[in-house]
């Protein structure tokens, strides 16, 4: 399973990189979202998929899956949400003030 997930990670990262290199603001926002998913999977894969049950302590003797990546991902999901929302509003305002979503048109002034 690890290999499969890692290959999926590779595909996600490729897609995210391509999106980030675009000139469209929306593509960049979506790209950052896809990249986040890739990183979540990466954290999961690095934690490994061993362990018999979910990390909630029960009565029977058992092994648990690694809880630490889960805690990290949980934090990441929420922060990613906040950042995506911020990007979105920013993009919206860029569109409102300059009527474009193409980053090539947004190079306001040539630096001195």
């Amino acid at each position: 399973m690890e290999t499969l997930i890692i290959i999926v990670i590779g595909v996600l990262i490729t897609s995210a990189t391509y999106l980030l290199l675009s000139d469209q603001i929306l593509h960049i926002i979506l790209g950052s979202g896809v990249l986040t998913h890739a990183v979540h999977l990466l954290l999961m894969a690095m934690g490994g998929f061993k362990g018999a049950s979910e990390p909630i302590i029960g009565h029977e003797q058992t092994t648990y899956v690694d809880a630490l990546p889960q805690a990290l991902i949980l934090t990441s999901i929420v922060i990613n949400f906040a950042i995506t929302a911020f990007f979105l509003v920013l993009a919206y305002h860029i569109y409102q003030s300059s009527n474009t979503t193409d980053l090539r048109n947004l190079r306001g002034y040539r630096h001195e």
């Binding site: 890692i6 290959i7 990670i9 590779g10 990262i13 897609s15 990189t17 290199l21 890739a38 990466l42």
Partner: peptide, 12 residues
């Protein structure tokens, strides 16, 4: 994009 994806895959 493909190169970045490949590097990450191999390292992972």
């Amino acid at each position: 994009a493909v190169s970045v994806g490949f590097v990450f895959t191999v390292i992972a």
